[in-house]
Simulated assay, not measured.
Amino acid sequence: MTMIKWFLLAALSAAMAVPFTRPVIASEFADVLETPALRSELAAGSMVTGLARAGERLVAVGQRGHILYSDDAGQHWQQAQVPVSCDLLAVHFPTPQLGWAVGHDGVVLHSSDGGETWRRQLDGRQVGPIMLAYYQRQLDGHPDDADLQTRVADAQRMVEEGADKPFLDVWFENERVGYIVGAFNLIFRTDDGGLRWTPLLERTDNPGALNLYAVRPVGDELFIVGEQGLVMKLDRASGLFEALSTPYNGSFFGVTGKPGVALVFGLRGNVFRSTDDGASWNRIDLGLPLSITASSVTADGRILLVSQAGHVLVSSDDGASFQLQPNTTLAPVAAAQVASGGALVLAGTRGLRQLPLE
């Protein structure tokens, strides 16, 4: 598989040098989709790859199905009840109570109690059959459509491959409408809170089936970023995610900003800023050649970027420039979130830690 969200951390953590090994029970391999996450006092100090606000609460997801939540701005964490033990990569809460998490093996989890308990809504064993049924119905109505024939063949191959279909990000517009994106142009939408998922692969301007790393809104616009400089924006009239021209052909790992200002960030410190909804982009020189892996926005509108090594850069001018915040405890970072009290919480190979902001 090509590089996914946390592969940048591999060079900094020997633990990520090999694929995750499934838990062993009674000398037999256990299916991570059927094995609940083990409770561990060390969970908050282990690999964590996703963070989200659920109202005043923070919710974090990570390896082996670990999900944790904090009600004191990240000082203390409690472990949630999770029905799977596959690695989780991203989490989002559109309301304080309702949240979704995604990860390896095509898993989609849902919580209705602020992240304390979770249930499985989708997994990789279902992804292929859902795609096959959806595109086969379309092909039945248009049997000579070459694109649909390709979609059906691809879906059939995914059925045969099994559960190994990672989702890399999730975002919900409200309690019903949401999107999940992943490797090789995987993208699904739900209009009923995850009860049913519809594939949207034909609605992306991504003919190379590049990995989709993040889906996030900035103002009223919804963006998706991925490999090889891919940046797409949703055209709500047509329902298509249209590719935008950017001056960089390396991977983008995230998108952030505020109404009127969008920033995409990725490999080797490359950050680009747009003030015209993505029509044009200008490079922002960070003076830091390290990949940018996380972002957040403070309550007073400052934009934060975090490098793969844990450097925190702060902008007070809507992303036009960034200043490096002093930080003597660098550690690999995969996700960041400003807590309700204003402190920055960072997640990565060494778990969760709180960092005061100047």
Rank of each mutant, 00 (worst) to 15 (best):
E34F: 01
A44S: 09
S27F: 01
P23M: 07
L51F: 05
G50P: 02
T35A: 00
V18G: 02
R53Q: 14
S27E: 07
P36D: 08
A37W: 01
E41M: 13
E28S: 06
D31A: 01
T21N: 12
A26P: 01
P23Y: 04
M47V: 15
P36G: 09
V48Y: 11
P36Q: 03
P19N: 09
E34D: 06
G50S: 08
V24T: 08
E28W: 00
A44R: 04
I25P: 00
L38Q: 15
M16H: 06
L51I: 07
G45R: 05
M16K: 05
A26D: 15
S46Y: 07
V24K: 08
L38C: 07
F29A: 04
E28A: 10
S40D: 11
E34H: 04
M47K: 05
S40A: 09
M47N: 13
R22Q: 14
R53S: 13
D31H: 09
T49D: 10
T49S: 15
E28V: 10
E41Y: 01
A26L: 03
A26R: 09
M47P: 15
M16D: 12
G45P: 12
S40T: 09
G45E: 13
L33M: 12
T21F: 02
S27R: 09
L33W: 14
T35L: 06
R53E: 08
S46C: 01
A44Y: 02
A43F: 14
V24I: 14
L51Y: 05
T35F: 04
R22E: 14
R22W: 01
G45W: 00
D31T: 02
M47H: 15
S46E: 14
R53V: 05
D31P: 12
L42A: 14
F29Y: 13
